[in-house]
Structures are given as structure tokens and as C-alpha cells.
Amino acid sequence: MTGKVAVVTGAGSGIGRRAAIALGEQGWNVVLAARRVETLEETAADGAFKAGNCMVHPADVSKPEEVDRLFEAVSARYGRLDLLFNNAGIFYTKPVEEIEPADWERSMAVNLNGAFYCAQAAFRQMKSQQPRGGRIINNGSVSAHVPRPHATPYTVAKHAITGLTKSLSLEGRAYDIACGQIDIGNAASPMTEAMPKGVLQADGTLKREPTMDIANVAQAILFMTALPLEANVQFMTVMATAMPYIGRG
């Protein structure tokens, strides 16, 4: 994989950080993107990047002009793009009747609009470069299939990500662009810190939920990226075995 170029959004923490490090360990040149430069620099300090095979580029993916600057910087430095891991996202819980317009708009702006802006920019680069093509992996979450209580904006956005994945897969066929989706459940990260303490269930009770090592997600992503562009993992679900997903509700 040495010399290939990846952009990882949300690379400052959690799944994004671990995926970026795993790619760096495999010899990828990794562009680290997130809003906060401090967390990106913490990721870049990992030993996986001792060879200098990374670039830190702060960007708010909800702002199309910042996404444009991100991908312009990638093109200027590396001249091509082989992988986008579309991972940036935010999550909060509120009963549906208490969701403010600003809450809804912010969730859509990051979880859906940001994913689209990044995918669009990556698609343009992959279509025009020589040799053309590349791979886009969208982080869908198990919420792309089933909701949690009090998570309407996140659930709606993640269902829409599935539509984005399918559309990119269809339009990418003509340009050697493969698009797949990884749906992750209860990987141990800052977003799932509450799981072992107890979280709201569909029946109104609070129950502890098991989590899994985030390294399992990174391994799944590496498997997807290792395939030649003639092959694609369209959808993959990787989750803690005992989490309440099958039969949720």
C-alpha cells in the first residue's frame, strides 16, 4: 500500500484516529482532517507516522468552502487520492419533541451534508486523476438500520448515508470508484463511554451495553481497503457481539 493516499475525516479521536493510525502502519499517506488542530496533532504524533506519511489539515466538513480547501491541499501535496474514509460525525440525545431547529440543522450539517461534501470532492478527484478511480468508505453506524431512543436526527442522517453510499456506488462504476459502507456498533470510543454505565433502551429501561475494542473496526476498514477496485464490500456491519442490535426494540 506504500504511496497510496487516504483522507480520514474525524481523525482527531475515536474511530477516525484508530483508522488513520492503522492506515499509516500499512504505509498509506494519510491526510488527517477534523475541526481541532490539537487533536489532529495528537493523532499525527503516533509512531505510525514517523516516516512523515501524514498531513494535518483542520477542516469543518459542514462548510463546503473548508472541504474544498482540504481536497485542494491533498491534490497539491500528493497529486491524487485513493481513499476517503468519511467518518466525521456528532451524536446527542433528546426526545423528539425537545429537538430545537438548531439541533436538527447541526446534526444534518455534519452527519449528512459534511459526508456529501467530502464524497463529492473525493469523487471529482478520483474521476479526473490518472490512473483514475479510488475508494470511498462511509461510516454508517448501526443507526443506519435501527434507531436508538431519543436519537432522531442522528438516525435520519445515517439512514440517508445509506442512500448516499448506493448512489456513489452506482455513479462510480463508470470511473473505477468503489463506494462501501461500514456500520459500526458499540466500538469503545468517546462516543460510547456511557454504554457500560447504562443507556436508555426501547422499553424505557436503562441497561448496560457491551462494547468492543475499536481495533476491530480498524481491521475491518483495512480489509475493505485491501481489495482491488474491481471488488467492493458494499455494506459491512461490525459490532460488539452481545449488543442489543438484532431484536432491538
Rank of each mutant, 00 (worst) to 15 (best):
M1Y: 11
M1W: 13
T2E: 15
K4R: 09
T9N: 01
G10D: 04
G10A: 07
A19K: 08
L23D: 13
G24T: 12
Q26Y: 10
W28M: 06
N29G: 09
L32A: 07
L32T: 01
A33I: 09
A34Q: 09
A34H: 07
R36V: 01
E41W: 05
E41I: 07
E42H: 12
A44G: 00
G47Y: 06
A48K: 05
A48L: 00
N53F: 03
P58T: 03
A59S: 04
V61C: 04
P64Y: 01
V67Q: 12
D68H: 15
L70R: 09
E72Q: 15
A76T: 13
R77Y: 08
Y78A: 05
Y78H: 13
Y78G: 09
L83A: 03
L83Q: 04
N86K: 01
A88R: 06
F91E: 05
F91L: 10
E97L: 08
E97K: 13
E97T: 08
E98H: 12
P101S: 03
P101D: 01
A102T: 15
W104I: 00
R106Q: 14
S107T: 06
S107E: 05
V110Y: 03
N111F: 02
L112E: 13
A115E: 10
Y117P: 13
C118W: 02
A121I: 11
A122S: 02
A122F: 02
F123G: 09
F123Y: 04
R124N: 08
R124K: 12
S128E: 15
Q129R: 12
Q130H: 14
P131H: 06
R132N: 15
S141H: 05
S143E: 04
H145R: 10
V146E: 07
V146F: 08
P149I: 00
P153L: 00
V156K: 04
A157T: 14
I161M: 02
G163A: 02
K166W: 11
K166A: 13
S167K: 02
L168A: 13
S169P: 11
G172C: 04
Y175P: 09
Q181V: 06
I184E: 03
G185Y: 00
N186L: 14
A187G: 05
A188G: 05
M191D: 06
P196C: 01
K197S: 12
K197M: 14
V199R: 05
A202N: 11
G204E: 11
R208E: 15
P210R: 05
M212Y: 00
V217D: 04
Q219D: 08
I221S: 10
A226C: 12
Q234N: 14
F235Q: 14
M236T: 08
T241S: 10
I246W: 15
R248L: 12
R248M: 10
